[in-house]
């Protein structure tokens, strides 16, 4: 019968880690790090790497069914058109309005409450600002998201990577901050996956 007394604690791993974290003498180098994963641990991140990358965000209890369905299926979304894509973005982020502008500033699709400057005005200004903002840190690569936090509302833009010098800006007007933050990675991934199919 297994001895369950205090003296039978298996502290081997704890001792190894502590020996590594507390070298015995001053100036002594740390022992080699513990080998990755005791063999008895199941590493979910290795079993499901794609799941770790596209983990559905938590949904508050009491969310309406369409939001629950949207969120749980978020990483499997496929859109044949920009209209469906922005409708999905809008429900996910609870934005007041969403639009897509091409690199010339033309509005391809829009949905929701028209902003004061109009979709065309807002889209055009966002496109103009993208090129200028990329000059801020040219070594940082292409601008992917811009987040403009005004005192009255937030305006967010996702910029797709250019293909044949053509790119799009998906603009979100007044998204709910927590929804936008927690869905940002999913939105990025979903739009990029669907981009070849979107006209």
């Amino acid at each position: 019968m297994k001895d369950r007394s205090a003296n039978s604690y298996d502290l081997k791993q704890a001792q190894q880690i502590l020996s590594s974290l507390f070298p015995a003498a001053a100036g002594a180098t740390r022992e080699n790090p513990i080998p990755d994963a005791s063999p008895q641990y199941l590493r979910l991140s290795k079993e499901f790497p794609s799941r770790m990358a596209s983990r559905p965000p938590a949904v508050p209890v009491g969310s309406p069914p369409e939001v629950l369905a949207t969120t749980s299926e978020a990483h499997h979304q496929q859109f044949p058109s920009w209209e469906e894509c922005i409708a999905w973005c809008m429900s996910l982020t609870r934005a007041e309005a969403v639009f897509v502008a091409d690199s010339q500033g033309f509005i391809i699709a829009s949905r929701g409450r028209i902003p004061g400057h109009g979709f065309e005005g807002t889209g055009a200004e966002l496109i103009c600002s993208v090129e200028q903002l990329e000059r801020v840190a040219p070594d940082a690569g292409k601008l992917l998201w811009l987040d403009l936090d005004f005192d009255k509302c937030r305006v967010v833009g996702f910029i797709t990577p250019p293909v044949d010098a053509e790119y799009y800006v998906v603009g979100l007007i007044a998204p709910d901050s927590s929804s936008y933050y927690s869905h940002k990675q999913i939105i990025t991934r979903t739009i990029l996956e669907n981009l070849p199919n979107l006209d």
């Binding site: 502290l11 880690i17 974290l21 790090p33 513990i34």
Partner: peptide, 20 residues
């Protein structure tokens, strides 16, 4: 107490990972 001692390796493992 016993449960704490049995589970201390979990915390140490995470600390080690974060540090490394």
């Amino acid at each position: 107490e016993s449960l704490a001692l049995r589970s201390i390796s979990q915390t140490l493992r995470v600390l080690m990972h974060v540090k490394e």
